[in-house]
Amino acid sequence: MVIMCNLIPVATTVGANKIVPTISIPYPLGDPQTPKEVQWKLRYHRVGVALDALAEDIKEQTVFRVKI
């Protein structure tokens, strides 16, 4: 399982093993202040990171890097 969330310290403390950061609490994957295409790009990218993370062989709790 991969968790996508904004409060990374909470996720690490409760013991999630694969973590992908999101951008906020009310809109984790798309800031409504930005154009739809920008939101889509961000969401598409981060969900892709989460999918790749599922296939990643990790040895310890990992917060995956996002580029957008």
């Binding site: 609490i25 009310p26 809109y27 984790p28 994957l29 798309g30 409504p32 939101q39 889509w40 969401r43 598409y44 969900v47 892709g48 999918l51």
Partner: peptide, 29 residues
């Protein structure tokens, strides 16, 4: 526990079904 405005306007910002469907079509999973 949070302002629902953004999620109500576009639920995919919380539950990214649209991005998952796109990757599905591409054959990523």
């Amino acid at each position: 526990g949070f302002d629902p405005a953004a999620a109500d306007a576009d639920p995919n910002v919380v539950m990214p079904v649209d991005a998952m469907k796109a990757y599905l079509k591409e054959g990523k999973f």
